[in-house]
Amino acid sequence: MISISGLTKRYRDVLAVDGVTLEVPAGSVCGLLGRNGAGKTTTFKCLLGFARPDAGEVRFDGAPLTPQTFEHLGYVPERPELYSWLTVAQHLEIVRRSQPKYDEAFAKELLATFRLDGRKKAGKLSKGQQTALALIIAIATRPSILILDEPASGLDPVMQRVVLDLLIDAATSGATILLSSHQIGQIDRAADRVAIMRDGAIVVSGGLDDLREAARIVEATFDTAIPDVAAIDGVTRVETAGTTVRVHANGRAPAVAARLGALGATGVRVLDRSLEDLFLDAVDDGGNR
């Protein structure tokens, strides 16, 4: 389990992370979404001790971060940080020598999966291959906690699928995973929880199904004038276009739909919303950015 409580990080006069509180239960995959500069990477840095938070607390399985935490924590950075002059095999040797739980057979299996040649120098690898190597370094110990910053960046669609499958497998085996990605489809497929950051703060978080349920929209068409629907219990936002009204039902779509029917709507339907819709709603700031 990853528990983040009131995490705050300020760089001079920029509040990079603003009181982030987030809990990722054991065995769950949490997707951290946000626009560039939203504070995702800084949050990760604070989690891993790369940056000192000004306030807040981070706990992994109930304990604060210590060097020993990294025996069961794997991290994939936003940009692979490899030694261009070392071979793929030498990178894995670093892990073998420094991680008691290194699983050599699994690492070899991963090399084959990603079609990486152990003799090739990291500097000669493509961007996608470098990402794959960074991923192998992180997961070759079969960590119980994984933190991944854009883990599929630079990979082709086939390899992206492989990475997602690996993450899903890890989560199925009980690993707790926190990953960020700009590719919402990846999060949608792999994550069961989502947190969306804006301006350093988490503006939406929760189980993906719950969030989807809460975000469902009810669309109703009236032959006559549209009645006052804003007063309906559960309605948080109303958009009208001609004789059609769309209301955000805040998790109460069936009840709101029934109420709209009772108010004389000739057609009522409940619309599911995609994660992308949720994300765009959450980061929407009226077009000021």
Binding site: L48, P67, T69, F70, L73, E81, L82, S98, A134
Partner: peptide, 14 residues
């Protein structure tokens, strides 16, 4: 300094 993801994620004190 450019490889903290590897160096600082080992189970050893910095």
């Amino acid at each position: 300094s450019g490889r903290t993801a590897i160096v600082w994620t080992r189970p050893k004190a910095r």
